[in-house]
C-alpha cells in the first residue's frame, strides 16, 4: 500500500534521505524510530508530496506521489505532531471542512459519530477549537483521518506531548483503524509506544533504514539497547 523505492532527498549539502526503500502492506503498522534529523519526517513529507524527491519514488496504492500527488493524497490520511485546526471554528466545523476537502459529505450525525469514536467529549464538539487542549486536537485529527476512510495513514510523532493515558487511547484507536486494512506509517521517539503498537519497527539514521525489527520477537529492553547502539555507533 505504501512503498518507497530508493527514495533520496537532499537539502543543499545535507543528505536527508539516502536511497530509502520500504513497503507497508494493508493492515501493517510500521513505526520509524530515530534521532532528530534522521529522515523520518522527510519520509512522511515525501509520501504527502509536500517535498519532491531528488531521485527514487514514493508510491501510495501504486500511485507515484511525484506524478500525481492529488490522487496519492486522496488515498492518504495524515496526523501531524501538532494537529492544527481553525481556532475560530468548532470541532464539528473543522471536521466537516476537512472531510469536505477530501470529497466526503457527512451528515451531522456522522460528524458527531466520528468525533465520538475518536474520543472527543460530547461537551467539546460545538466549542471553538481555540479552547481545546492538545489531546483534544489530536482526537479531532484522528476523526478527520477516520472520516476520510483512507487506505494509508501517516503519523508524524502524534503522541509527543500527550499524557500517558491519552497516548494509550490514541494507540488503541490507531490499532482499530489498522485492523480495517489500513497501512500505517508512524514516526515516533517513543520506544515504548512503538513496541506496543507496531507490527514492524524500523530504526533510521542519517537518512537510512539501518535496522528492521519484529516487535513480537524482542523485549522493551532489547529494543532500547539496539536503538542506543545505533545512535552511538
Amino acid at each position: 500500500m505504501l512503498e518507497a523505492r530508493k527514495l533520496t532527498k537532499r537539502f543543499g549539502d545535507h543528505l536527508a534521505l539516502d536511497s530509502l526503500s520500504l513497503s507497508i502492506p494493508p493492515g501493517e503498522i510500521l513505526c520509524l524510530l530515530g534521532a532528530n534529523g534522521a529522515g523520518k519526517t522527510t519520509t512522511i513529507n515525501l509520501f504527502l508530496g509536500f517535498l519532491q524527491p531528488d531521485s527514487g519514488s514514493a508510491l501510495v496504492d501504486g500511485v507515484d506521489v511525484d506524478e500525481d500527488c492529488q490522487a496519492a493524497r486522496h488515498r492518504l490520511a495524515y496526523i501531524p505532531e501538532q494537529v492544527t485546526l481553525y481556532r475560530n471554528l468548532t470541532g464539528v466545523e473543522n471536521l466537516q471542512y476537512f472531510a469536505g476537502l477530501s470529497g466526503r459529505k457527512l451528515t451531522r450525525d456522522e460528524l458527531h459519530d466520528y468525533l465520538n469514536k475518536a474520543g472527543l467529549p460530547k461537551t467539546a464538539v460545538d466549542r471553538n477549537v481555540g479552547t481545546y487542549s492538545k489531546g483534544m486536537r489530536q482526537k479531532v485529527g484522528i476523526a478527520i483521518a477516520m472520516a476520510k476512510q483512507a487506505k494509508a495513514l501517516l503519523l508524524d510523532e502524534p503522541t509527543s506531548g500527550l499524557d500517558p493515558k491519552a497516548s494509550n487511547e490514541f494507540s488503541n484507536l490507531i490499532k482499530q483503524v489498522s485492523k480495517n486494512g489500513v497501512a500505517v506509517l508512524m514516526a515516533t521517539h517513543d520506544l515504548f509506544n512503538a513496541k506496543e503498537l507496531a507490527t514492524r519497527i524500523g530504526i533510521m539514521k542519517s537518512g537510512k533504514l539501518v535496522e528492521t525489527l519484529d516487535p513480537e520477537a524482542i523485549t522493551h529492553r532489547d529494543l532500547e539497547r539496539i536503538y542506543l547502539q545505533h545512535m552511538h555507533a
Partner: peptide
Amino acid sequence: QGTLRQALSCGA
C-alpha cells in the same frame, strides 16, 4: 499554523 498541510493532505 500548519493547517495548510492538513488541508492539502486531505486532498484539497
